[in-house]
Design a binder for these strands. Structure first.
Length: 804
RNA sequence: GCCGAAGUGGUGAAACUGGCAGACGCACUGGACUCAAAAUCCAGCGAUGGCAACAUCGUGCGGGUUCGACUCCCGCCUUCGGCACCA
């Protein structure tokens, strides 16, 4: 049988009759939105790993359609980004060309797989009709005070200029492997931290896989504690943030970030200012990598002549600068309690500072700090803490906070690890940020009617040496007029990060051709929230945060109908190369689905990828299984030779049919494709044993297999002129009553050892089962000389007789 | 270091809510069909001992709970992902 020919035939039919195009509303149908993270069209094309998730979600979409849902299953390309730009530079072509070429390859590959995608809704983030709305949405962020130009640190490579975080690998540039440094630069940021609480809170309304939820929670990193104000004896104050206020009597020093503004303010009072200044400069030069990775040794310098006063007991303690303290978190200063914090412990050791122990418990470790994760909940008590000594830690925490709050030197504070979203990239291949700088009016948003601000097509777009965007060199493009006063002004030359376009693409699918708005409220209402969202694990955390944030903002300004865009989120396991490592061109272990499809057909590939293992677990690619699945499909195809008449399930196959329907239906719903295929194989084996299959049975088998092997099932269906047309056929349903058996085999155990197996009526009571079991010959023999104690009966499974 | 996912035959893996471990495949072995091969079909297939019926062991390691543990609890080991001084 020529699989390819059959598959091409049906793919063409589907395309011609626009089989999978959907309207936003369909009378008497419920909508379902099945979404797969759109691919980044890299030059490598798709590998068999992509096919795993695409065909899996396609199976879900196809089944839902047969169950009577109006299903949106769209596809597009996340086309802006560094890789296309880099490839373009290497090949001396325009990114536009590279992307067009890559998208063409992707589509060819995708179409060969036979996905039931509504291609009329295809989008690409680098299409001006699309990014016009990305820019428009940026303007809304700006107009609502959520976009702002701020001085922030950027990653800086001496060769390549400004780098995105994604380009920094372990402190080195991913391209030229130079050491990455930090540089302060004005950047656009989106104030995502304003949404931190809601991004955390609203997770409760979602049904993400547990580990995905956890990583959202960890990334947001909420911590609750106290902000405490410390007086400096020599004048001035500063705040610190702590989650361990109970250790305040254990403070023996304070540490400020090197960037802390107090350093300059106290200049005259610091006796060793030269040394301090040198340290600050040194810290500035260091990359984040050095500051974190290489410098666990806790470098620091004492501010001589400066002391801080512990508000709890009035004690004076020295103040240090230390670059382990991050200026960007909390208030850039910490209280140091070396007895109860490991970092403080190491710093104190390094610099010869005192320790004061303030907590005593019975699980104290030796040779390191006794930290909160150990003493909390361990019934530990305070010592050396004046009136709080003797209190249980948990009580002391409350009481000390109360005291300091009453004194007016402390207040409750919540901090987040999550930062605002640095939204500028000094790159060519991204959405231009639609802002104009005017000497008279400052930053001005581009007039909405002038959108999109398109990327100029230019010869040279390589990153500049000074770290400015390549767009800055294109003076024609840069020079414009101020939208406010009309005088000459300059365009913002930074572009948006790759994450921008992907933060709202699922909305555009709902209304992809709309040129009045990014999507109409009606269209959005009919599809959102996404019912099932699948994507790779690698960037789930950040993508979800960005997309959720973006949507929440649109929701707040009345442009999105839902506060959470995705009802559920799952992630497929990777398909690794046959050697157990990630597929990559350089390792030569990439398997192109086209090769497999040419040899065995798309249906075999799809069935195999469903069957190869648990969808959420990674697997090594092997094509042994493709052959097996091809065999299975051929077997089903050949059932045409043993087809007989019959509009009802035959007696011989009735139980097998209903069992399979139930199993396949539930397994697809529960994303257990491997066992769904196994159930179909079992059914096929049953048919083979019986030696014939009737129409009703064959139709059901074909429909159950259709989500996984859509081509061959439609081929057989059409060959046999089955009614109605397969596109109007409905998903089979099982009859639970047909699964009820009169008798079931039980295993009979005595003291957990299986002694016998016997059929038992399913209507028997436990007492009757026990009686019958004890009458079994083998049981009787085994019970000789033993005394019956009791019997444990697990319905339909086993009887365990306990005997002495 | 922290967080997350995982560890079951020669191999990919199943196992509902704690209830007969290894479903369904692959590979392998034997057989049927064939001049032969391929394809297909039938049978076997965790380990050890035994001619056998059968017995003992067996889900990374060590403990525990339970009549009963791949599954729950405690303590480890290994692999893979993510994050990295977050006060």
């Amino acid at each position: 049988m020529d699989f390819r020919k059959i598959e091409e035939k049906w793919q063409n039919v589907w395309e011609k009759e626009k089989r999978f195009e959907v309207k936003n509303l369909e009378p008497n149908k419920q909508n379902a939105y099945i979404l797969i993270e759109f691919p980044y069209p890299s030059g490598k094309g798709l590998h068999t790993g992509h096919v795993r998730s695409y065909s899996a979600l396609d199976a879900v979409a196809r089944k839902k359609r047969m169950q009577g849902y109006n299903v949106l299953f769209p596809m597009g390309c996340d086309a802006f980004g560094l890789e296309a730009e880099r490839t373009a530079i290497k090949e001396h072509k325009l990114p536009q060309e590279i992307v067009a070429r890559n998208i063409a390859t992707f589509k060819e590959q995708l179409k060969m797989v036979g996905l039931s995608v509504d291609w009329s809704r295809e989008i690409s983030t680098c299409d001006p009709d699309y990014y016009k709305w990305t820019q428009w949405q940026f303007l809304q962020f700006y107009k609502h005070g959520l976009a702002e130009k701020q001085e922030t640190n950027v990653n800086w490579c001496p060769n390549c200029g400004v780098l995105a975080n994604e380009e920094v690998e372990g402190g080195y540039c991913c391209q030229c492997h130079s050491e990455v440094q930090q540089k302060t630069k004005a950047q656009w940021i989106l104030k995502m931290t304003k949404y931190a609480d809601r991004l955390l809170e609203d997770l409760k309304d979602t049904d993400y896989m547990e580990h995905i939820k956890t990583s959202q929670i960890n990334w947001i990193g909420k911590s609750e504690g106290e902000k405490v104000t410390f007086q400096i004896k020599q004048g001035g104050t500063f705040d610190i943030f702590t989650t361990c206020i109970e250790t305040i009597y254990g403070i023996t020093f304070m540490v400020l970030a090197p960037e802390h503004p107090l350093v300059k303010k106290l200049k005259d009072k610091i006796e060793n200012y030269a040394e301090v200044e040198a340290y600050v400069n040194e810290a500035k030069k260091k990359s984040d990598f050095e500051r974190s990775e290489l410098n666990k040794g806790k470098s620091g310098v004492c501010l001589k002549g400066i002391t801080a006063i512990n508000p709890a007991n009035g004690k004076e303690v020295p103040v240090y600068l230390g670059d382990f303290v991050l200026a960007s978190y909390g208030s850039g200063a910490v209280m140091a309690v070396p007895s109860h914090d490991q970092r403080d412990y190491e710093f104190a050791k390094e610099h010869g500072i005192d320790f004061i122990k303030v907590i005593e418990g019975n699980n104290e470790p030796t040779g390191c700090a006794y930290e909160k994760q150990d003493y909390l909940g361990a019934n530990a008590k305070l010592i050396n803490s004046e009136e709080f000594s003797g209190l249980i830690v948990e009580d002391a925490k409350k009481k000390i906070a109360e005291k300091l709050e009453k004194m007016g030197v402390a207040e409750k504070q919540v901090n987040f690890k999550m930062r605002d979203w640095v939204f500028s990239r000094q790159r060519y291949w991204g959405e231009p940020i639609p802002m104009v700088y005017c000497e008279h009016c400052g930053w001005q948003p581009v007039d909405e009617k002038d959108l999109p601000i398109t990327l100029p097509q230019v010869e040279s777009y390589e990153p500049t040496i000074d770290g400015e965007s390549p767009l800055s060199l294109i003076t024609d493009w840069v020079n414009t007029t101020c939208p406010k006063c009309g005088k000459p002004a300059k365009r913002e030359t930074d572009t948006m990060p790759g994450w921008a376009g992907s933060s709202w693409y699922f909305m555009r699918y709902c209304d992809p051709k709309n040129d009045k708005e990014f999507a109409s409220m009606d269209a959005l209402k009919s599809w959102l929230p996404v019912d099932l969202y699948n994507g790779g694990n690698e960037h789930t955390t950040r993508h979800l945060l960005y997309a959720r944030f973006w949507n929440k903002f649109l929701y707040d300004i009345g442009l999105s109908p839902v506060s959470e865009p995705f009802k559920s989120r799952i992630s497929q396991g990777l398909v690794l190369g046959s050697n157990g490592v990630k597929m990559s061109k350089s390792l030569g272990n990439v398997v192109d689905p086209r090769e497999v499809i040419k040899e065995y057909g798309a249906d075999s590939l799809r069935v195999w990828e469903a069957f190869m293992g648990d969808y959420f677990q990674s697997v090594n690619w092997s094509d042994d299984g493709v052959k097996a699945c091809n065999k299975f499909i051929t077997k089903v195809y050949n059932f045409q030779d043993i087809l007989v008449d019959g509009d009802e399930y035959s007696k011989e196959l009735s139980v097998a049919m209903h069992t399979a329907i139930k199993k396949v239906t539930n397994d697809i719903d529960n994303i257990k494709f491997n066992t769904a295929i196994a159930a179909l194989m079992i059914l096929a084996n049953e048919v083979q044993k019986v030696g014939k299959i009737n129409k009703a049975e064959y139709k059901t088998l074909l429909l159950l297999l259709n989500p996984f092997a859509p081509h061959i099932t439609e081929e057989v269906w059409t060959n046999q002129n089955f009614e109605p047309h397969i596109k109007d056929a409905t998903w089979p349903v099982w009859d639970e009553s047909k699964l009820v058996k009169d008798e079931i085999e039980y295993a009979i155990q005595i003291n957990n050892k299986i002694i016998a197996r016997e059929m038992f009526g399913t209507k028997l009571t436990n007492a009757e089962i026990e009686k019958q079991a004890l009458e079994n010959e083998k049981v009787k023999n085994a019970m000789a000389g033993k005394t019956f104690v009791k019997a444990i009966i697990i319905p339909n499974r086993l009887i365990n007789i306990i005997a002495k």
